[in-house]
Amino acid sequence: MHFSEESRISAHHNYLVNGRMTQGFVLGEPDSGDRFFFLADVVLPAESTPRISARLYGPEGNLLCEVQWNRLGRNPGRCTYRSLEGGFRILDEAGSVVLEVMTEKFPRGYLSGISGRLFDEEGRLRLEPLGDNSRIPGEPPRFLTRPYGGF
């Protein structure tokens, strides 16, 4: 039986990944400059939306786009951002969903589910859909206990 503390959760906002809750996590290296990363940052009580930043690649390892605090940044892959009720979606040039983040509102808190199919710069699958959230194959994410901040 595995009983070690796997992450910390917040009373205010959490992400759902691998079927489990966490107040924040990071995949890859946000500070690397040109490599894959996915950051679901800790959301403080003053805010009600998730804080997603990422550098996303296609299955061939081609850079699609960057996301900074839920907004598209550098975008060589001509991705589009679509705002949804309760979240947002990023589509590739062909209109396929790359990433979707949807937030469920509870009476006194929020839970953001992340789904999509994310690849790194070598074309390795780093996140894939699993039911109403996502699975992280291979190396587990680093769980955050405080906001990651800048990168």
Binding site: M1, H2, F3, S4, E5, E6, S7, R8, I9, S10, A11, H12, R20, M21, T22, Q23, L44, P45, R108, G109, T145
Partner: peptide, 14 residues
């Protein structure tokens, strides 16, 4: 009282 700033560990036993 409900404290929105609170955090706690989460365990998922088998």
């Amino acid at each position: 009282p409900h404290d929105p700033e609170a955090t706690g560990g989460i365990f998922y036993p088998e």
